[in-house]
């Protein structure tokens, strides 16, 4: 059952990922990217990490992609495949292949290559939300606070740039 489901999700994920770069219309690319994120969220659910899945959908599909879709709409880029931008494809493919190589290296060499033998049953029972929250507010309090200050700076900066007169 799980293998079958995994196969279906994988096919959708790969097809939509190909659609992201194959589509002529940027909006359709963005929609395909949302579908890819959704498939990733499904993988997280299958790996017993529902919190991560919900956050994936909320942050990536729900927030970041809205921003991207907005940008595409407001600039009204319809079809963007002119000769003028063809050199970008070259550099883009270099970056893409480098990332692919990097990912393959990580998967083959790192700890991810050896499957986990013991599943932490306690962690599954408590739920990831509680564990993540506890870790975040005890062991990782300083990074958490620094991140929130960074985000605050970004918000204030955005307001200052957007509003000429405050």
């Amino acid at each position: 059952m799980e293998t079958l489901f995994f196969l279906i999700v994988s096919i959708v994920a790969i097809a939509s990922a190909v659609m992201v770069i194959a589509c002529r219309n940027p909006i359709n690319s963005a929609l395909s990217l949302i579908l890819t994120f959704f498939c990733l969220a499904t993988y997280y659910v299958m790996l017993d990490a529902p919190f991560l899945a919900a956050v994936q959908v909320m942050v990536y599909a729900g927030a970041i992609m809205v921003l991207i879709v907005f940008t595409i709409m407001l600039l009204n880029i319809r079809i963007d495949a002119t000769r003028r931008h063809s050199h970008m494809i070259f550099f883009g493919s270099i970056v893409g292949f480098a990332t692919l190589f990097n990912t393959v290296y990580i998967v083959m060499k790192s700890r991810a290559a050896t499957p986990a033998t013991t599943v932490n049953v306690e962690a599954l029972k408590a739920g990831h939300t509680e564990l993540i929250g506890r870790e975040m507010f005890t062991n990782f309090l300083l990074p958490f606070e620094i991140t929130s200050i960074l985000l605050l700076v970004a918000i204030v900066g955005a307001v200052v740039i957007a509003k000429k007169k405050i």
């Binding site: 919900a54 599909a61 729900g62 809205v66």
Partner: peptide, 9 residues
């Protein structure tokens, strides 16, 4: 969280 995620879609 699931509901919030869906409503953001």
């Amino acid at each position: 969280l699931y509901i919030l995620a869906m409503s953001s879609l």
